[in-house]
Amino acid sequence: MQGIMYLGGISAIIFIIGIFVFIAKEGLPFLFGAFDLKEFFTSPRWIPTSENNPTYGALALILGTASVTGMAMIVAIPFSLGAAIFIGEFATGKTRETLKILIELLAAIPSVVWGFIGLTIMNGLIIKLFNVPIGLNVLNAGIILGLMAAPIMTTIAEDSLKAVPDKYREAAEAMGATRWQTIRRVVLPAAKNGLVSAVLLGVGRGFGETMAVLMASGHSINIPHSVFDSVRALTATIAAELGETAVGSPHYGALFTLGILLFIITFLINLTADLVVRGIRKK
């Protein structure tokens, strides 16, 4: 019995190392072959299928992912912090329980359904509202992704608000602070680490999300100049192209290199979130 528990415990470590080894193994031949570091990070030309002169510039993809994630955070941060403050500090009894269940339900909606909403409802809405030719763009994908990331961010933010001892609120209120003053001047600063890590995990979610972004972003290689430009994300590129490449080809390796990049970014974001939660950045 204990052996099974132990196996279960270390399996996570084995899997993560396994995944990394796999991605690295597939990506490395390309990294040491056709890979050009400067081109990869500075060129927006992602033309891996060219017969004579394939180029592997990931800049547009990186910016695509970054712009959609940035937009998503603009949507998700006010939503999720607002929801967390309401649930954690104001709502009581049934309201609170109902809201918590609803938010967990929201987190369980499959990403393809979100993508579908982006593709159909949001697309038409954006075209109509802003009078733009295409509604599949940074704005669309950002809003969808923001709504997707908000529930988990809300849950973590609310946990960190709940972890603030009530004696602080009582002390502030006994000095004559209103509910809002207490939240703004005592609770939020005390919960700061948890809130930052909630945002970081949301960012990590944004970088990693594939299907909804693929469907709602327009999936066209572009350096975005406004929120109404279509973009293509790193994840969506891998998902859309990997099935059509020959195993072991430079294109195949390039896609795995994108995977390595994503892996490193999300790893760093999650690590930072974790360190922040543990308060290591606190002096």
Partner: peptide
Amino acid sequence: GMVFQRPNPLP
């Protein structure tokens, strides 16, 4: 003003 049983300075 109020002083509590357990000292509760704000963080």
